[in-house]
Design a protein around this nucleic acid. Structure first.
Length: 266
DNA sequence: ATAATCGTGCAGGTTACTTCA
DNA sequence: CCTGAAGTAACCTGCACGATT
């Protein structure tokens, strides 16, 4: 009935999530991790990949309020970043670039405390509107980064690769959270629809039961043998067996619908 | 061929900071 | 000015996987 029209999901909570092929052609490493993506990251939510107003609202407001231009903003962030670097206990790790040669990249180890020698708490920069926009564009292209893309983005944005990496991780998490909320809302609606459908069917069942009792009483026949077809008005007794009976109550094709045949009642 | 080890990246969760109503 | 909520950068932990030994 209307359920599919309302829900139109088939409860298949792919729910508008499409497999994004691009994700599987990011890099050799990511191709190798295809299984992992299939498990975790093969949905590409339709609602959250565009620049989400609520997500970027604050950043926009910040920049609008600053009104000093990007250069100042970037400069502030640069100094902020250098401050971060100074206390980040930056362990130098080696990341392979695509030529196979190893490039030394300053990298904040995620397993190392982010306090510097003085024990000052971690600083937190705010990405500028421009930086956010570029990151967002990149995320639209591919929600994961290979090392070279990460490095290029970091250079372009004057950020550390680690910061780009973290931004993408957080962005994926936000996307997933949004999608989960959407899915949850959809499930709620489906649940409500199913509940109503269930109520309606229960009610219909009750009416059918009472109708059946009334009909059997009027015809003075045992309820078990009542097999009259309302359309052809032929009556078959229960003793004739299902093979010879043109219909039974249980047979859907001849099932009497009291709602479409109200005049057939006694 | 197989197991152990290492490096890396990710998801999920948390913390700490910023901004704003 | 104070405060709580929301947003988010940065971090931690555990896991999976591939490469190397």
């Amino acid at each position: 009935m209307g359920f599919d029209d309302v829900c139109n999901t088939g409860l298949g909570l792919g729910l508008g999530c499409l497999v994004k092929q691009e994700q599987f052609s990011q890099s050799d490493h990511q191709q190798k991790k295809k299984k992992l993506f299939l498990k975790h990251d093969h949905f590409f939510p339709s609602l959250t990949l565009g620049p989400s107003d609520d997500i970027y609202q604050s950043a926009t407001k910040i920049d609008a309020s600053k009104a000093h231009g990007e250069s100042i903003d970037l400069h502030q962030q640069t100094s902020s970043l250098s401050a971060v670097s100074s206390f980040s206990n930056s362990s130098v790790k080696r990341e392979r670039d695509f030529g196979g040669e190893e490039v030394e990249l300053e990298r904040v180890s995620s397993r190392v405390s982010d306090e510097d020698e003085e024990g000052s708490p971690r600083k937190k920069l705010r990405l500028s509107k421009e930086q956010s926009a570029i990151l967002e564009d990149s995320f639209k292209e591919h929600s994961t980064l290979n090392p070279k893309q990460k490095q290029l983005l970091a250079e372009q944005l004057n950020l550390r690769p680690r910061q780009v990496e973290v931004w993408f991780q957080n962005r994926r998490a936000r996307t997933k959270l949004k999608q989960t909320e959407v899915d949850c809302e959809l499930l709620k609606k489906c649940c409500e629809t199913l509940t109503e459908e269930n109520k309606r069917l229960q009610k219909e069942l009750q009416e059918l039961k009472s109708l059946k009792l009334t009909a059997s009483y009027c015809m003075q026949l045992p309820a078990a043998t009542l097999t009259m077809c309302p359309s052809c008005e032929r009556v078959a007794s229960g003793g004739e067996g299902p093979s010879t009976s043109p219909f039974t109550i249980g047979q859907k094709s001849h099932f009497f619908n009291p709602f479409t045949h109200p005049s057939a009642a006694c």
